[in-house]
């Protein structure tokens, strides 16, 4: 009788080892399924109009790209278009914009080559003459077949991208006069 009980020990151990209670705990985490709600998501969306403390978007320049009724021609207060800011904009641009707009902004990205409607080049007069706030607005609200990127690109990054688009526009329309004395000397040296 005692021997038979001993045999049970490994059997019980083997069975309990397969329990996954702590692996899959009876709680809901983000993106899990719940049958309780009609859209099947365990996580509830925020009530419309919810604003986190200290996150009220009061500044129309920063959050809508507008000063008064027109698009802002400058970066909002607190942003400085220095090299680090532009490089950050370049990295973000290369992630989110190049699939359609292409590396240099001619609207010749990979997705366009697969049949997506080609966006206009940044280097046409209409877009070169737009204030920087316009590009922020297009990223935020979308334009034509371009959807809003507001949920994917945070406000700070959108301004960095807008600044980088400006830099791209300058790069494709630069003259020798835009190049600094030192760099001009380097270019002349490079020719020899």
């Amino acid at each position: 009788m005692r021997n038979k009980a001993l045999l049970l020990i490994p059997a019980v151990a083997a069975l309990t080892a397969c329990r996954q209670d702590m692996h899959d705990q009876p709680k809901f985490k983000g993106l899990q399924v719940s049958g309780l709600w009609t859209n099947g998501q365990a996580v509830r969306p925020l009530v419309e109009g919810t604003i986190a403390r200290g996150r009220l978007r009061q500044d129309p320049h920063k959050f809508a790209g507008k000063t008064g009724d027109v698009f802002a021609a400058t970066l909002p207060a607190g942003y400085k278009a220095d090299k680090a800011f532009l490089l950050h904009g370049q990295r973000r641009y290369n992630i989110y914009c190049t699939p359609c707009h292409g590396m240099a902004g001619y609207g010749d990205g990979m997705v366009v080559s697969r049949g997506f409607k080609a966006p206009p080049s940044y280097h046409i007069d209409r877009l070169r003459n737009q204030p920087v706030g316009y590009f922020f607005d297009v990223m935020t609200n979308g334009y034509g077949v371009m959807v809003s990127y507001a949920s994917r690109i945070p406000v700070d990054d959108r301004w960095a991208i807008a600044a980088y688009i400006r830099a791209l526009q300058l790069s494709q329309n630069a003259t020798l006069a835009d190049v600094s004395e030192a760099d001009r000397a380097k270019m002349a040296g490079g020719r020899n």
Binding site: I95, Y96, R114
Partner: peptide, 24 residues
Amino acid sequence: IGIDCRYCHTSVEKAAFAGIPPTE
């Protein structure tokens, strides 16, 4: 197509979860 990981997995640099893209 050459799409960057972060085009869809947007929160990978900022959060614990890399992010599963919404249908949008």
